[in-house]
Simulated assay, not measured.
Amino acid sequence: MPKRFPFPRLSATARCLLSALLLPLALAGCTTYVNAPDDDLPPSAQQPHELDYRVLEDQTYTPPDWPQALQADVYLPETRDEARRPAVMMVHGGGWEGRTRDDMTPIAERFVKRGYVVVNVSHRFAPEYRFPAQLQDLQVARHWIDDHAKQWRIDPQRIAGFGYSSGAHLVSLLALVAGTDSDLDAPYGGRDTGFAAVISGGTPADLRLWDSGRLLIQLMNGTQAERPTAYAEASPIFHVHSDAPPFFLFHGSWDDLVPPEQPEKFMQALEDDGNHVELLWMNGRGHITTFLFRGSAESAALEFLAREMPDLKMSP
């Protein structure tokens, strides 16, 4: 079991001061990797070629009758062969109420250079659209990716999900309810809306662990006391099962927005059902700084995908 907190609990002011003193160490990638694999990666994964790529911007993925037209940016690696490639669907954070997919653009650029087709998607926001509208958007997007798999040379058996913060909540939930008897899987889901692997950072895994603040109230259309069943069913941890895809979690050890208790409990639930899960602690970082200085997490996530979705053939 991982340590609950790699550093002692301090006041918010003390943490800010100490964070400033430790920032050079944090930027150097001070991390703790739980369940780090012992096996070596193949040379192609360790020292990859960086590929050129092109981007199909502002592609509408929703059907004409959808409540709001939503777009995605599709990143396509330029290769000399016609082999099907692995893909990653990326979902931005923003408390389910804002931000844009531009937040994920630097990550998308790094992954496409490594040979992944990347589909960076938008979704509807609360409070205008309540949950599960956001999950349904992603289910539609996931079907859309499959519909274009041949055109974009995607291997449909090697599609991963990547989200941060509220995006991690949605990606994790999408992966876990796909093909199950959950009401959340109908009518837009299905087994083919799942993922072969999941990268999930700063994950709100159990909505019941918070007091009902503004973001959750507007997402869920009520407090936890008013809608306890809905809060449980909207939590990824509630849907963990023995056939879950492998998960790579990363989280700031000083995260006050999504406390470290969240990934700890999520990891334990996944492991208890016999699933593979890895956890990278970003020591001395909060919720925002974990995302801003995520380079070591991106590197570990790429290695994770090279193991979990193998046979990535890089062009010379």
Score class of each variant (00 low, 15 high):
134 Q>D: 05
139 Q>F: 05
199 I>N: 03
191 R>L: 14
161 G>L: 06
155 D>P: 03
125 F>Q: 11
209 L>F: 06
183 D>G: 10
182 S>C: 04
210 W>S: 12
180 T>G: 00
171 V>Q: 06
217 I>K: 14
152 W>F: 14
148 H>S: 12
169 H>G: 08
144 W>M: 00
135 L>K: 05
166 S>L: 03
138 L>W: 06
175 A>I: 02
164 Y>D: 13
188 Y>M: 00
186 A>K: 13
161 G>Y: 05
176 L>T: 01
207 L>D: 05
125 F>C: 10
167 G>A: 08
148 H>T: 11
175 A>V: 04
125 F>P: 05
137 D>F: 03
145 I>E: 01
193 T>L: 02
140 V>R: 02
163 G>A: 07
142 R>M: 10
193 T>I: 02
175 A>G: 08
132 P>S: 08
151 Q>V: 14
128 E>D: 15
159 I>F: 01
170 L>I: 04
212 S>Q: 09
185 D>Y: 01
141 A>M: 11
157 Q>G: 11
129 Y>D: 14
153 R>W: 10
206 D>I: 05
131 F>I: 14
176 L>M: 07
218 Q>W: 13
160 A>S: 06
172 S>Q: 10
141 A>P: 04
156 P>N: 07
213 G>D: 12
170 L>W: 06
139 Q>M: 10
155 D>Y: 04
197 A>D: 03
137 D>P: 04
170 L>T: 04
138 L>A: 05
131 F>E: 12
195 F>A: 03
215 L>Q: 12
199 I>T: 04
158 R>F: 12
174 L>P: 06
133 A>M: 06
158 R>N: 09
203 T>N: 13
217 I>P: 04
183 D>L: 13
129 Y>H: 15
145 I>C: 04
210 W>A: 07
142 R>N: 05
174 L>D: 08
191 R>N: 09
151 Q>P: 10
195 F>P: 01
193 T>Y: 05
201 G>D: 09
187 P>G: 02
214 R>M: 15
209 L>M: 11
161 G>R: 05
199 I>Y: 06
216 L>N: 09
177 V>I: 10
143 H>S: 13
128 E>N: 14
168 A>Y: 12
136 Q>A: 14
198 V>G: 01
139 Q>E: 11
186 A>F: 10
